[in-house]
Structure formats: C-alpha cells, structure tokens
Design a protein around this nucleic acid. Structure first.
Lengths: 157, 157
DNA sequence: CTCATATGGATGCATATACAAGCTTACGGA
DNA sequence: TCCGTAAGCTTGTATATGCATCCATATGAG
C-alpha cells in the first residue's frame, strides 16, 4: 500500500502533537492555563510588545487564528491589546501584571513537564528532534515544498 | 532564560504541525477534504470497520473528539456508522462507496504532498523523523512520562 | 490634496479536539 | 432474575485554528 496513512508525515506529526499536548496540558492544569496559552504568554514576555502580526509569525500561526486564540487571554486579564500610536492599524500586545504573575506560577509546572520530556526521551534526542522540527517550520522549507509542487506538477500554490 | 518558550517541545511540535498541516491541506484542497479528514478515511479503509474506540486509539485521538470530527464525514456521506450487532453499545465505522471514490480522487493529491515532503526534507530524514515521533505517541512513552512525574514529584496524575 | 491600493486586524463560519456529563447496553454476582 | 458497575458513545461547552470577508488606517502616485 503506497498510500498507507501510517506513513503520512502530517498524520504522524499530528498524532505526536496530540499526545504531547495532552501531557503538557495535564502538567499545566493546576494553573488553569493550556500549554498553548502558556506558550503564547511566554512568547509575548520574551518579545516585549509585539504586534499581532509579529507574534503570529513567531508562533507560526495564522493572524486570524491568533486573534481568536488571544481572546480568552485578554478576557482573563493576562494580556492587554493597545493600538500602536505610530500606526493605529496595529495593536501591540503586552503582558499584564496578572499575566506576569501567572507565568511565575506556571514556571515550575512547565519546567517539570519539560524536564520529564527530556529525561524520558533523552536530552540529546530531544534537542535533535526539535532541531528537525524547526526546519519544517522555516520559510525556506515552505518555499522549497511549494517550489517542488511546481516542478513535480503536483499543485503550485 | 531557562524557560525559553522557543525550546518548549510542545510548542515546537505544534508549530511544525501547523505548518505541515497547512501544506498538506493546500495539496488536498482540490478534493474538498482536509488532511485530517483524508487521514481518517484512509485509516478506516485500512482498518476495515473499526469501532469508535478502536479508531480513536489508532489515531491517537480522544473518543469524544473523534465523535465530533466524524460528523462532517458522515454528513457528507463518506462514512457510515452502524451499531455492532454483537454489542449494541458499539458503533462500527465503514467507508461508503462515495468515501472510496473520494479516496481514489485524493490519492494523487496526497501522494504529491508526501513525495514533495520526502524530496525536500530527504527520504532518510523523513523516515527517521517519523520514527522518533511514533515513539512519542507510544503508550510506553506516555507511561514513562507520567511515571517520571511521580518520581520527580512534578505531578502524578 | 485625493484616490487607488496595500497593510493590519477583527469577525463569521467551519473543522479539530479535549473534558465533563449523561444515556444505553453488557456483565458478573447475590 | 435484579443490581450495581463497567464499557462505549454522544452531547454540551470551551479552546484552537484556518479561510473569506469586511473595516480602518497608511502610503504612494498624480
């Protein structure tokens, strides 16, 4: 069977994501944050006050998807959105004090999950795996994939 | 920064999944199926007539999540659910003729994406990556992760 | 300055998923 | 046979995301 679904790169990636997402979600559960939300808050803290677009790009997310995803976080007061005075179309995202506090609270939980992941899978291996995955998220890979589509006549896009 | 979000295994996995999911979705777009849906149909075909639970396990999905996800597919006539005569609690999932036909239609599209992925990332590398990811989805990994939680006092569950 | 176009987002709609509840059918006793 | 409990699903609710569309602001050409 040349089209065995168990060999589909996308399917395998998705399955791994579901499982690992589960493990991290469980670890963070006591804080009330999902792993996704924790990741976004941490990314915002690291970036300072990114615009929607900047954060979306960093997180490899669709702009509209990010817009939806941020709602629970702004609703709960962890993030604040304010129009950029330089360009009033843009909205700058900032971590509130409550958000900072929450990140302080989740630090242990997240670290625990991360440590367990590295302990069980192996640090070297974990680093190598993430390295490979980052290549997949690079714009270069995306471009090459689409270019291959043109060459192989499988769909340009 | 020991809690750099860019090193979070979960975040990196998710980002890769979003990107690759996008590429496969685009490739399958002409068929009207999402990559996820295509994967489910193909898995059902491969399994025969699995019950909800069996399919959920194979797909590393939550049973309720699967229940919701199958709705568009049954609604559109690609799949049919029928109670198992042996155990009327269980429901067997079968691919309809329309579903078979659709899979025939998507075969080329999926193969194209898969080929491009392998061509761009490298066949060896793709195989190795999937191998690593499959380990993450194994029950053994999950158990080890949770066991580590108990030992490291980070959260038993 | 004025308008066409590009840029930055927000919103409606649809699928993807998970958890908590609730319902129905099986099954192993007492 | 009657129960209590387990097993297998479905449904309600909430977050996660992407596409198409729409609104507002910025920009560059004339």
């Amino acid at each position: 069977m040349t089209n065995d679904p168990s060999t589909c790169s996308n399917a395998v990636l998705r399955q791994a994501m579901r499982r690992i997402g589960q493990l991290y979600d469980d670890a963070l559960a006591p804080s009330g944050l999902r792993a996704t939300q924790h990741g976004l808050l941490a990314t915002v803290r690291k970036m300072g006050s990114p615009t929607m677009r900047e954060l979306a790009e960093r997180a490899v997310m669709d702009l509209s998807g990010l817009s939806h995803t941020l709602k629970p976080l702004t609703r709960d007061g962890y993030l604040r959105l304010a129009p950029d005075p330089r360009d009033r179309r843009a909205r700058r995202i900032t971590l509130t004090e409550k958000g900072e506090a929450k990140l302080g609270e989740t630090a242990q939980l997240w670290r625990g999950a991360q440590d367990r992941f590295e302990a069980v899978f192996g640090m070297e291996r974990a680093v190598a795996l993430k390295s490979e995955l980052r290549i997949l998220t690079s714009p270069e890979f995306q471009d090459a994939f689409n270019a291959a589509g043109a060459e192989m006549g499988t769909g340009t896009r």
